[in-house]
Design a protein around this nucleic acid. Structure first.
Lengths: 300, 300
DNA sequence: ACATAGAATTAGCTCAGCTAATGGGCTAGA
DNA sequence: TCTAGCCCATTAGCTGAGCTAATTCTATGT
């Protein structure tokens, strides 16, 4: 059962003529005649009364004509809505980012992309690190931006930059004025840490242990914002990526001190599904991100 | 664009599997794969995300799936309603009859047909003679029953019977008591005639003229009932088919006298479109009619 | 009755779409 | 991490559904 046949049938009924309907559909009169006979055989009902000139649809033919009309209309509608949704998705980039990157950097990087591609849409969602990975795996996001990205069988990684880690303290803290500190200065300090299951926590712990430093963990949080608030009420110090505290540092609400802990830096990367064929919009978005981070490298 | 392909697509989405959908539709996995690729190419949109196992529909795929679902449902509905309408029409006989036959005979003939074929439906419509022909020509009736039927290129005739014509008078008329009359007895009588454009009028005029009789036409009507009413008020006499006045004759409200006008009789016949293939129901109905009229022949 | 337009029929061909066989990529379980 | 198994993609080759061209048949108007 072919939609072209149904279209042909509708035209035959409308035009009351096989030959005109046929030429209208780019086939011969013979083809139309055969198609209609086959249709009638398939449905086992005479649809057209050929004993009159010009031919007319039978009762059944009229019923079927109405139905076909609606059917074809419905199909065209579906096609149209598909085209529309395609346009929409084509120009859309769905980004899942961890809080600390999303809140500080993404909006900044998105500006040049948006102005360069006005037809494109960027959907940014800030999530817990684990959720970022899940979102990309479930194809709820085209790309994910997170720290300490790890490639898997299904995920590709594109390193973006490496963020320097600094000591962050309350402005009145004894170390706040120091130009530089050594690992040993931190011994015994009250420390506001990341949650144990975060990669950044493990990296910091490893670095401290490597330098033989032992701190007193007083609080644990899963995001930078809350840690900053804790430092703000002088609950302790912490080690955070520099880009996440530039604003507070500038406003003197928090103090930052460069840290000489070898190998401690937070790598930021971009992940996407390995198999996935990237749309032009997504490809250009990734390009924009890489370009921006190459220009303002913020390592060490 | 094939409905089978759309069905296959729906099954693929539902079952989340090419191979299961394929075997469900009686084709190989290869065929399904090719069909889906072709569908996606046709619509220029990826409908299925094959990079995950089990596969899932893309956003566009889900949209199209919904549409296809409705489409296929709609088609099946149309098919079903077609089947239903076929059944209905199959068992229906649409009869168009002239008043004088319809009112007196048809209901009588229909009884045995209906009881023999309880599933059948008979629609009887009583019309003006010209309208009877039109109804059959326009396929608004399967068969027509009328007097003086004439075959044409498009109409076949099946003679049913020939009705004797009798003189009909008011009971108090001077000729009412006569056993038999000769043509000459009618000379100068006030006469209630059929309309000039009716075949029966022409037949009566021809017969009277043939016997050199001249009557005084005082009224003209296009149907037997009105003529009978006119006779009932003693407006004049008339010549009518005997079957149309048996009741009035029995009740002595009108008088009937046998008429010796050679060649004057009203033939009743059945007409149907020449090209038309008669349904079993119509064929059996015609059969019933012929049988009944053979049994109770009412000629001369 | 004839002419004409338009549908049915027929024979033959072409390619859309199928199968069978094979190759490649997820995914799971050791 | 490696491997087995399942599932989809790909390819080559074939078959018949559906097309065209040519002819015949039929309804209708003159």
């Amino acid at each position: 059962m072919n939609l072209d046949t149904l279209k042909l049938f509708c035209d035959v009924v409308r035009l009351r003529s096989f030959s005109r309907a046929a030429s209208g559909n780019g086939v011969t009169q013979s083809a139309a005649s055969q198609a209609m006979q086959q249709l009638e055989a398939e449905l086992d009902v005479p649809l057209l009364d050929r004993s009159r000139r010009p031919l007319v649809a039978t009762e059944a033919g009229r019923v079927f004509f109405e139905a076909c009309r609606d059917l074809l209309q419905g199909f065209e509608d579906a096609r149209a809505s598909l085209r529309a949704s395609k346009e929409r998705v084509e120009g859309t980039v769905r980004v899942a980012a961890i809080y600390s990157v999303g809140l500080h950097d993404m909006s900044r990087h998105m500006q040049p992309f948006m102005s360069a591609h006005p037809q494109a849409r960027v959907l940014l969602e800030c999530l817990h690190p684990h959720k970022v990975v899940q979102a990309v795996l479930n194809d709820e996001a085209d790309v994910g931006v997170l720290s300490y990205p790890t490639a898997t069988r299904t995920l590709n990684v594109l390193p973006l930059r490496s963020e320097a880690m600094v000591l962050v303290t309350h402005p009145s803290h004894r170390l706040a004025r120091r130009k530089q500190i050594t690992p040993g200065d931190l011994t015994g300090e009250k420390f506001v840490a990341f949650d144990r299951d975060l990669a950044v926590r493990k990296a910091i712990d490893r670095a401290l242990k490597q330098h033989g430093v032992k701190v007193e963990v007083v609080m644990e949080f899963d995001n930078v914002e809350t840690i900053k608030q804790a430092i703000g009420i002088a609950a302790g110090v912490s080690i955070l990526p520099r880009p996440t505290v530039v604003m507070e540092s500038g406003m003197r609400t928090l103090a930052t001190v460069p840290l000489a802990l070898s190998g401690l830096a937070r790598p930021i990367g971009l992940i996407y599904r390995r198999g996935k064929r990237l749309t032009p919009a997504v490809a250009r978005f990734i390009d924009t991100l890489r370009r921006a981070d190459d220009a303002s490298e913020d390592t060490r």
